[in-house]
Nucleic acid binder design. Structure first.
Lengths: 197, 197
DNA sequence: GGAGGGATGCGGCGTTTTGTCGCAGGCCGG
DNA sequence: CCGGCCTGCGACAAAACGCCGCATCCCTCC
């Protein structure tokens, strides 16, 4: 089982599903999908689509175990919710989710109090895993660098997601030809993310 | 010309060079090179090549402003120095340097108290920048995803570094043919890292 | 000192991928 | 209804890649 990390979560599911969770995600479809997926795991999800709404929602909640914040919210930045959130619920486990993540962004999020940092696409299992695992121990860190193909593919997925699936613009952002992106996308239908709903 | 962020540090150099710095780097050549490069910036560098030596060195130092820790030290892990280091010098600015970095590793390092997380190759300017900048503010975060070519190139450099420049093994780790890696490396002599000494 | 293993650089050649056209179709606002 | 934008796809040349082989160099071990 060297690098069988095609899916993030290990076999043992820590089963520490938070009872109350705040989800900050501006995309309607993905937000609803994530909300339902988490709800299926027995978690009550309070969903906000923008920073202001999340702040208001925060004030109304009597308790909060976890929070999943999308970093990229148009003009807002999900990281700005971390401080008020932790001020009200210091024990709340916060993870940040982003379309495409960089190491610098991950450091920024962590320094602000985030527990973990995930890049899309992340399904409910990934999220629950990130909430349950303590990222401080580096035993679970990948020691082998990902293959070039894998790296490329994940990056393509992130950029594509960041551009709302627009192939033309994603190809332009990636610096490759639109035709090439088309061909590459067709070769690999969808490696993970098979979660039926 | 669009994404001209070939070099990380912005034009403004914050010039807060630490007076006393601990460098933990197991590679002799790179360690010496880094030590000299930092010393040229007016910084007294205490260099250790393994974790035990670093601990001993730590006990002898009267003061410490900053630390640069290589994460990958053969059997040891540079992250394990963070805790004792901060216990003795709570104000010390610690950054972690690694051959190939992942977001998970960056999160782990940050949660353990590191101020920033860099991937090789990082020259003295990168290191001083990372020490000076506060990674909490995300204003300086890259908003545009790197091009595929750039991503590939940097990853190749990291993997190559992680394998001590061994082209055959790096190619194997990358999942590409050795001949292909050779050809790619020849096309781009060395984008950064021109710092002559 | 010679055999062996491993890493490197490089030429060549067939195969695969990419870049770059072009064209048809779908969707939407003026 | 037209123009703009995005998509899917065919075709073809150019580039890149996989894969062979070979010569060289360095190191270790016997």
């Amino acid at each position: 089982m060297e690098n069988a990390d095609t899916n993030g979560h290990s076999g043992d599911r820590p089963m520490t599903v938070p009872a109350s969770l705040l989800l900050l995600e501006d995309d309607d479809i993905l937000g609803r999908q994530t909300q339902r997926a988490l709800a299926r795991h027995g978690c009550q999800v309070h969903w906000a689509t923008d920073l202001a709404a999340a702040r208001r929602l925060l004030a109304t909640l009597p308790a909060l175990d976890a929070a999943v914040l999308d970093q990229n919210l148009g003009a807002d930045n999900g990281l700005d919710l971390i401080a008020p959130l932790l001020a009200r619920f210091p024990e709340c486990r916060v993870i940040v989710l982003t379309g495409y993540g960089s190491i610098a962004a991950a450091v920024a999020a962590t320094r602000r109090g985030a527990r973990n940092y995930l890049t899309k696409p992340a399904d409910a299992n990934d999220i629950l895993d990130a909430l349950a695992r303590d990222p401080g121990d580096l035993e679970a860190l990948p020691d082998a660098p990902p293959s070039l193909q894998r790296l490329e593919w994940e990056h393509i997925q992130r950029v594509l997601d960041a551009h709302q699936g627009n192939i033309s613009r994603a190809a332009d952002a990636l610096g490759i030809h639109r035709r090439t992106l088309q061909r590459r996308l067709k070769k690999r239908p969808s490696p993970k993310h098979f979660e039926r709903d």
